[in-house]
Design a protein around this nucleic acid. Structure first.
Lengths: 247, 247
DNA sequence: CGACACATTGAGGTAAATCAAGTTGTGTGG
DNA sequence: CCACACAACTTGATTTACCTCAATGTGTCG
């Protein structure tokens, strides 16, 4: 609280998301061009980064922290439609309005580019355009996988699916493998999980308690999760235990 | 049934999806290159175009008819994750395996390209790559809008949402406007609608009957729909009646 | 005509929502 | 240091929207 996260990743070469973000395929020359137009922004947990319907003046990558994309109906029902983790891209080159709210779920640092210069750079830098297409296709896959979760899975399966996704993304970020027990902190409140899963927060709470009682997960406090057996969790999620890929 | 749909749209210039498909931004020179590697394929209603997990040897555009993307769990629960209408693109340049089944929902004609040559052409034709990114972003928006439908809407709202989407896409294809009553044929069985909406077919049937009883829609036979008041339908869908854009 | 795929309608059961207390934990101010 | 407020969470009782199971209806095609 005392000080903002430091805004001093001045050098792209050392950037923690260098090899996964939109700049992944850039050579050092292209990186220099990006370096010139980039700037960092921090957001505190709970802050709205972009309002649905607003003009988007910038695009950028999540460097650290988590952001969520949410849609809200007039009567207040809300659905989270995306979870943005470090290296994920925010914004839509070529589009003006933002189609959903972007909210900082935890404290957040983003590497931003003003939209116009970025679009121009993209137009003459196939490496960037290509990487962006790749990332967009990945997001589309993730969204469609989520449609199966929302449309057809039970509450228990939904929770197990969410835990397994978070566990896997966490493992791939921290580079601990997927063998042995997995340990991580839930970055979401029960309510945020409910918004992601199309449930109520009470149902989320009940199902987490049930998974805990059945030994599928362990909890210390409300957020610290241990998964003794990842295969078991994936069974609970209704996913193919076999063709399990590690992202 | 007697004869397959004709496979003779030999000239891209006259193609009905020329201005909306992946080739939309191409100049006549680029079009000629595409023309050389393209070929048409027809599928009968019910046929599977691509099996989930299979190698994809081609990509292509829907020329006429409707295809659907579906995901299936081991126990048979299925969720439709995309509805492909004329001009929509099938396939993922740069990826090998297909992530979901592609099924011809009606008789279907596709304009195909072998994957390799298309990828090579794309690499040196920014117009194509750019258009594909545009289209992928649109699909991502559609998928996310659908997540709200699946996660938070009631059965009645889901049906209304589906009808309103089909009505709008139909209007934009046939170029009839959105003023006055809208008339179209449902291209989906009750079961397919259920798979799209995360419902059972019985619930779909009941809600359609209810919307009919309440005068929101008219039905002739089981498939021919008239929507006397589009605004009313969109209210039923829980959508903003105001900021209504016409696709 | 009968067979078949598609659709409707009804009766009853159930998973999850809703409504309603509590509990836990953390930071604030007296 | 304790009392208090507050947000996050848990747990219980009740309701309800949707599912499941089952019977019946409608249209098309050989």
């Amino acid at each position: 609280m005392s000080s903002h996260p430091q805004l001093c990743h001045s050098d792209c070469q050392d950037c923690p998301i260098r090899h996964r973000a939109v700049c992944a395929h850039c050579d050092s020359c292209e990186l220099e061009e990006l370096e010139e137009i980039k700037y960092y922004r921090s957001f505190e947990a709970g802050q709205t980064v972009i309002w649905s319907g607003d003009q988007m003046s910038f695009v950028g990558s999540v460097v650290s922290g988590i952001a969520s994309l949410t849609q809200t109906m007039e009567d207040g029902r809300t659905q989270m439609v995306g979870l943005l983790l470090p290296s994920d891209f925010v914004g839509r080159p070529g589009r003006d309005g933002a189609p959903y709210d972007v909210v900082a779920t935890t404290d957040l640092v983003m590497c931003c580019f003003r939209k116009k210069p970025f679009e121009e750079l993209m137009a003459r830098t196939p490496h960037i355009a290509h990487r962006l297409l790749e990332m967009t296709l990945d997001e589309l896959d993730a969204a469609r996988e989520w449609m199966l979760v929302l449309g057809r899975k039970t509450a228990r399966e939904k929770i197990a699916s969410l835990l397994s996704i978070i566990a896997r993304r966490d493992a791939s970020l921290t580079k601990r493998g997927m063998s042995g027990p997995m340990v991580f902190d839930l970055p979401l409140t029960r309510e945020a999980m409910a918004d992601y899963l199309g449930l109520t927060l009470e149902t989320v709470s009940r199902q987490i308690s049930a998974l805990k009682k059945d030994g599928v997960i362990h909890l210390e406090g409300k957020r610290h999760v241990t998964i003794p057996d990842m295969g078991r969790l994936m069974e609970e999620a209704g996913d193919d235990t076999d063709g399990g890929f590690l992202v």
